[in-house]
Amino acid sequence: MTTNTKTATRTRIARVSSTPQASTTPSRRKKITLWASAGLGILVVWQVGFTLFAPAYIATPIGAILAIPTVFADPIFFPDVASTLGAVFEGLLIAIVAGTIIGLAMGRLPDVNRVLGMYVGAFYAIPLIAIVPLFTVWFGYTPQARLAMIVLEAVLPIIYNVAEGSRIVSATYLDVTRIHRVAWWRVWTGVVLPNALPYVLAGLDLAIGRALIGAVVAEFVTAIDGLGTYILFNVHSFHQNEAVIALIVVVIFALVIRALINLAVRRGLPWYQPVKEA
């Protein structure tokens, strides 16, 4: 009896402890097989489950694939894609510039931080989509309301990260500039700005997802042309499969833009080491 328990205990210990050692990465081929089978599994469950238990207008994988030609032939689809993604792109650019400037000012000038800090903190903590109704009152049911929403969503993580990042410019860097009697503007352009760049990128990483949420919510509320409206309209008119394709386009856009940023960083900023997002 005692011996039995002992053996059992030993094997159980061995199982838990060996896990980290066993976590050597499997081969690429094995990984791809795993991904493919998991993906197939998800699709089959989705297809079979919804075919059996849901109304016919609910989207299924086969339905969505069959809907692709319809969606691409739809004359309003590509203008809608361009409208939403263009606005997100424009909003992100505005947010990068504005967020970097405000973030730098907050990070380096304590008085600015004392006044603005709590407002940025408050806006960062609340669900900004609550502001959409107010924006519809100010901007009307227009693309400007959507752009404002995108900028507001995207600018906050950038401000927050840049402010945090530039606040902790290594004291040694600043000592180096002082020992070398460097002009103040060179300190900003040559040290503070490049030092903040990884934080801009960390903020941007968060900003992309938030900007897309802002765009879709604004479109849901205002019903202006765009992918969000395309999704809403098609779901409401029982064309869910078409709507799924539009949603996938949004996801692909998010993934592609992140991949592009990663690529640009690796090519353009060989010194870059990612920072933890604030």
Partner: peptide, 17 residues
């Protein structure tokens, strides 16, 4: 992919379902 999905976009589907 799911993490990159703006979840608001799923709401209309949930409503229908």
């Amino acid at each position: 992919a799911l993490y990159a999905t703006p979840m608001v976009g799923i709401i209309p589907f949930l409503l229908a379902l």
